[in-house]
Write a protein that binds this DNA or RNA. Sequence first.
DNA 1: TAGATTTGACCCAC
DNA 2: GTGGGTCAAATCTA
Length: 270
Amino acid sequence: MASPRLKREQSFDFEEAISTQEAMRPASASYSPPGGAFGISPPESSPRDGRKRRKDRPSWVNHTFTPHFDGHLWRKYGQKNIKDSAFPRLYYRCSYREDRQCLASKLVQQENDDDPPMFKVTYTYEHTCNTTPVPTPDVVAEPPATSAGDAYLLRFGSAGGHGDPEQMDQRERQQHRPAARGRPFMMLSFDSNSHLHEQPAFPSDQLPAAASPPFTADALPPPPPSTMDGGGDLLSTWDSFRYGLDDDHAQIGSHVYLPDNCNGGDDNYC
DNA sequence: TAGATTTGACCCAC
DNA sequence: GTGGGTCAAATCTA
């Protein structure tokens, strides 16, 4: 009987995929991982001969209140209690890992028990699955209140990440995670003139910088393509979010969204 | 029934 | 030797 561990051999050639990805990456300093747009640190890559050591893997760190909110589809594959950490570390990999040999993975580590809690998200490898990031998995547009004219209200929550807010909420409950479930970080409303009205969803003295996006323009990036894998149900939400907006950029939390001239580039983001 | 998550065990970098 | 990262069977959910 062969050891079950031999199944590991059946996975795709990780080293080859790594080599391919590194070959695709521009050698110049203009290399911009997803975190580049998301305001996270540059990769700590220091390639050595032969095999990649863990610490040699390209990785970058993001601190966020919304660890699931990066527009990609992730599949959780592990969870571990970490020494000297009060919170478990969650391991995710790209849902397209096998389909498209996408090496991207991330570790989510809660850093404190604040309300909302801060998470440290460590990304490893860029996405090679060529899926368009869906930046608003947990942005919900609400119809205008009767007394609010034609203004739309946008609620920014933290329960998103896998596309379906309902489903994520169910997952959050299943995992007994208190992470700001159902509680918006902030609320934005737009009127028909694309004027922005920003309303922190919690007291201003608790308002974290990352949850106070400098929405100077009233714009949003183009919606994800309707062919988007696994995220088709987001489109209506996106359309609502985009209502009345057509400028050149927007920023949500630490996530910056750029206009049409960013065609995805080498790294799915600009 | 298929796909996602949980969780204990294993592997390996440090 | 230890702790972190990953695997995969079991379990859960829609």
